[in-house]
């Protein structure tokens, strides 16, 4: 049993404080949703946890089983068991997924030559087109394919905690289900703890959270059970200091030729 414990976290960019004191504890096997309007600090939370350059931590801590993450370089946070599924996965020309993950396995002290098979297995599980495995990382992938690729890597790397930064954006409902099923399976198979950051409540119908937190203006203003997400759908964020409602994501067009095509594209 592992614990990711965030306490008193204050962070921002340059002079601007965006997170104004976050307290949040996720245990193995749990799914927590962090919801909030645009600009509430959701993505900042994700990147501060992973250590993206440019963010400055002013106070607080983020401990994974007691180990402080915030002082570690990004790659060591990954080795400690943290995974971030990015909202905008970056294209890395000329670099294959297999080569990249091999480096991680080697750096973690594992041997070479395990990644290829794991990729095949994971691709099969979520229905990721195998041809995409040999393409350079994310290059010319659709938005949906990129999110599948993030999920695939989560499956191969088997982290202890995964932060999902808007993993639902760009996915049609079938793809969203496939991604959600895989993450849900990880919570029971390998006791993955999940922090799902989302603007929309749509993913929460698929990835049923144990706890829902509402983030507004850099603070968690309310936490509750799954019923909180449903309430937000009706009443919007207004009661929590924001004007915007967590609208249902527009449904994907009914007949997509490519099931992974980005409906926003």
């Amino acid at each position: 049993m592992s614990v990711l414990e965030i306490s008193g976290l204050r962070a921002g960019i340059a002079e601007r404080e965006i997170l104004k004191g976050i307290d949040l504890t996720v245990s193995s096997g749990e799914v927590h949703a962090v919801m909030g309007p645009n600009g509430s600090g959701k993505s900042t939370l994700a990147h501060v946890l992973m250590g993206r350059p440019g963010y400055e931590v002013r106070a607080g801590s983020a401990r994974l089983d007691g180990q402080e993450l915030l002082g570690l370089p990004t790659w060591r946070r990954a080795h400690a068991g943290l995974f971030l599924a990015m909202q905008y996965p970056v294209e890395v020309p000329g670099v294959s997924l297999e080569d990249a993950l091999e480096e991680t396995f080697v750096a973690r002290g594992g041997g070479r030559g395990q990644v290829a098979e794991l990729l095949q297995v994971e691709a099969e599980r979520i229905g990721f087109r195998r041809q995409l495995l040999t393409r350079p990382l994310n290059v010319e992938f659709s938005g949906g394919e990129k999110k599948f690729n993030e999920t695939l890597q989560l499956g191969v790397l088997r982290p202890r905690f995964a932060v999902l930064d808007e993993i639902d954006s760009g996915l049609d409902i079938d793809a969203l289900r496939a991604v959600s099923r895989r993450i849900e399976a990880a919570t029971s198979e390998s006791d993955l703890g999940v922090l799902a950051i989302t603007h929309y409540s749509r993913i929460l119908h698929e990835l049923r959270p144990d706890v829902v937190h509402v983030l507004s203006q850099g603070r968690i203003v309310v936490s509750g059970g799954p019923e909180l997400a449903q309430e937000l759908e009706r009443t919007g964020y207004a009661a929590y200091g924001a004007l915007e409602a967590p609208t249902e994501h527009a449904e994907a067009p009914p007949l997509l030729e490519d099931p992974f095509a980005d409906p926003l594209a």
Binding site: H79, V90, V92, G94, E103, T104, A107
Partner: peptide, 23 residues
Amino acid sequence: YYLEARGLPPEAAERLIVLGFFE
């Protein structure tokens, strides 16, 4: 950042990016 977030140490990330650049 993307590669390091996946657990690649900085030297490995740099090596892959440079090799990828020339690929």
